[in-house]
Design a protein around this nucleic acid. Structure first.
Length: 576
RNA sequence: UACUCCGUGGUGUAAUGGUAACACAGCUGAUUUUGGUUCAGCUAUUCAAGGUUCGAGUCCUUGCGGGGUAGCCA
């Protein structure tokens, strides 16, 4: 369907693209544009990462052939990283439709080179081994309003630092006893320039290098140098790294022998209404069982959106719609929903499914008769063709489509009222059958032969309501899950406040398991990964994990726009 | 009460010194065998005050508001 690779559709410009255009115009980097997407493999990717992925890989596509985008795992902290995450990240980037070709890298591939650069800095008198405790370092760093104090080890000799640094590498130094720091300026107004830590000792097993190292570079040190080693021209990251830029530039300037001269620019990360985006919070939702995993369809993770039924094209389109700036914005999730509706409206096959069945007996329809009715597979795409749907004397309609005492403006079935069965004829309600408790259990109707196959006899008043249905005898039971927003508040973190807890704001109705839904027979053969529009209900996706042959489970991706629901809500609001 | 980045409709973006545009959301109405889709229409003197200029959303100054920063995380 729409899962094909990215088309080189024109992208509106933004401050990053303008910058790159300037670089190209000035003949910098010999006309090359080389970007990278550098996740730490410590969690699953989310829609915010998709923004960065679309930017970095998009740039490479836009500037080909002298352009490319690397996938680099920023794996400099072995205590947090796992192979599981490495795998899922690759799967997600690929699923989004992007390809890094041969350019898959790991910061850990550069550990040896990075170590050499560190010795170089020590030899130049630009780095030193500090033996202060972590507490002392923190205390001596000063505060936002007061300058820091030089370490007593700051002016030790090059030889001494070098010897100590080698001991650190050799595993002769315990964690927390010594670190390597850059010698910059303890009085800098920028905290990151107050002799930042470059290396620390970590006696941990790394997911790739195992126990080969016990000395690990910090992000601030490894990132710019990794960029330079790969020949990255444009290092694009989010706003919280703004203050790291001077350090990035300091390293690029002071380390000799770098093959490239990258520069860093920052853009605002994505925030979406009614969800949380930080890895820490998403991890908590998973760990505490508020959701059923990283790929729970309510999660804003790529894997969650995929399982919800979002398409790669819709996510790419969304990323194009939201733009790129340095403004800390909050994007309405309705934009995301619009993107997927647009895609699915054009591409999803239609089907008739009754969520909460109410039996309707068509009294003047012969007992044993079955007829087949032609239904359009996709009104937006004639090539999708048509199908035959069985119709018989007893059918199911949705409980929402019948009301004994309807509000004004209600177009659906009511006592004495008439509706058209989608693709079929009109039926009129003759009688309502109730059980002992007064619950409506069956509706008895008669059909009008003159309206068969959509015929609208001249002079006959037009029926406003058209409802979906399935033949009771032919329908197949299917499992359906309806999803709503995960939180009740637009900004859960903010609404919870300083002392509050965002998990208390989880929407109790975020998941509804629908029991007893009945589908038109063709849906028994729905295959995993298929997208459908259940007419009048929304877009649904065949769940890849819980579906079995002949027993599909459908996840609702998003509902259809529902202007009648708005009217009802307004009426109820008016009543108080 | 440090440094730094950012303030354009309800929301997100565009306008690169020259008539404030687009999308989403909302509200009308038309079309429609999905209360869907589609189509048409409606909703802003750009945070404020000064300044530069023939002309400022855009440049300058100040103020106000918001974000970020004191990990041996990334």
């Amino acid at each position: 369907m729409s899962d094909s690779a990215v088309s080189p559709a024109p992208v509106a410009s933004d401050f990053i693209r303008d910058l790159i255009a300037d670089d190209l115009a000035a003949g910098r980097n010999e006309g090359w544009v080389i970007t990278r997407f550098p996740p730490e493999p410590n969690g699953y990717l989310h829609i915010g990462h998709a923004k960065s992925i679309c930017l970095n890989f998009g740039l490479a596509l836009e500037h080909g052939p002298k352009a490319r985008c690397h996938l680099r795992f920023d794996d400099t902290n072995p205590t947090k990283e796992e192979t599981e995450y490495v795998d899922s990240i690759q799967e997600d980037v690929r699923w989004l439709g992007f390809d890094w070709g041969d350019h898959l890298y790991y910061a850990s591939d550069y550990f040896e080179k990075l170590y050499g650069f560190a010795e170089q800095l020590i030899e130049k008198g630009l780095a030193y081994v500090d033996e202060q405790s972590a507490e002392a370092i923190r205390a001596n760093r000063g505060t936002l309003t007061t300058p820091g104090v030089n370490s007593p080890f700051r002016d030790r000799s090059v030889e001494e630092s070098l010897a100590l640094f080698r001991k650190m590498r050799a595993g002769e130094v315990a964690e927390g006893v010594m670190i390597l720091r850059a010698k910059i300026d303890m009085a800098s107004p920028n905290m990151n320039m107050r002799d930042p830590v470059l290396y620390r000792v970590l006696k941990a097993t790394h997911h790739r290098t195992g126990d080969a190292w016990c000395l690990y570079p910090m992000y601030d040190y490894a990132h710019p140098l990794s960029d330079a080693l790969e020949g990255i021209t444009h290092s694009l990251c989010t706003l919280e790294f703004e203050h790291h830029r001077p350090l990035y530039e300091w390293l690029i300037e002071h380390v000799d022998g770098l093959p490239g001269q990258p520069y860093q620019r920052e853009f605002a990360r994505l925030s979406l209404t009614y969800t949380v985006m930080s890895k820490r919070k998403l991890l908590r939702l998973v760990k505490e069982g508020h959701v059923q995993g990283w790929d729970d369809p309510r999660m804003p993770t790529i894997s969650g959106l995929r399982r919800r039924g979002y398409t790669p094209a819709s996510i790419r389109h969304f990323c194009r719609m939201i733009g790129l700036t340095k403004f800390n914005s909050l994007t309405d999730v309705a934009v995301l929903e619009h993107a997927v509706r647009e895609d699915l409206n054009a591409n999803a096959l239609r089907a008739l499914v009754v969520l909460k069945p109410l039996k309707v007996v068509i009294e003047n329809y012969p007992e044993d008769q079955v007829e087949f009715i032609e239904a359009v597979n996709n009104p937006e795409n004639e090539a999708a063709g048509t199908r035959q749907m069985p119709l018989s004397r007893e059918i199911y309609i949705d409980q929402d489509d019948f009301m004994e005492v309807p509000p004004s403006g209600y177009h659906r079935l009511k006592p004495g009222g008439e509706v058209r069965l989608r693709y079929g004829f009109c039926i009129r309600c003759q009688e309502v059958v109730k059980d002992a408790s007064g619950q409506v259990v069956e509706v008895r109707c008669i059909y009008d032969e003159a309206t068969r196959h959509g015929v609208q006899p001249e002079g006959r008043p037009k029926v406003k309501g058209i409802i979906h249905w399935v033949s009771a005898r032919h329908a197949v039971p299917v499992a359906v899950r309806l999803y709503d927003r995960l939180f009740t508040e637009e900004q859960p973190e903010m609404a919870a406040g300083e002392d509050g807890d965002f998990v208390t704001l989880i929407n109790p109705g975020s998941l509804t398991n629908v029991e007893g839904a009945m589908a038109e027979p063709a849906l028994a053969e729905a295959v995993v990964g298929g997208h459908y529009q259940f007419e009048r209900l929304g877009y649904f996706y065949v769940d890849p994990k819980d579906s079995h042959p002949g027993k599909p489970v459908f996840n609702r991706t998003v509902g259809l726009k529902d202007s009648w629901a708005k009217v009802v809500a307004k009426q109820q609001g008016a009543k108080g």
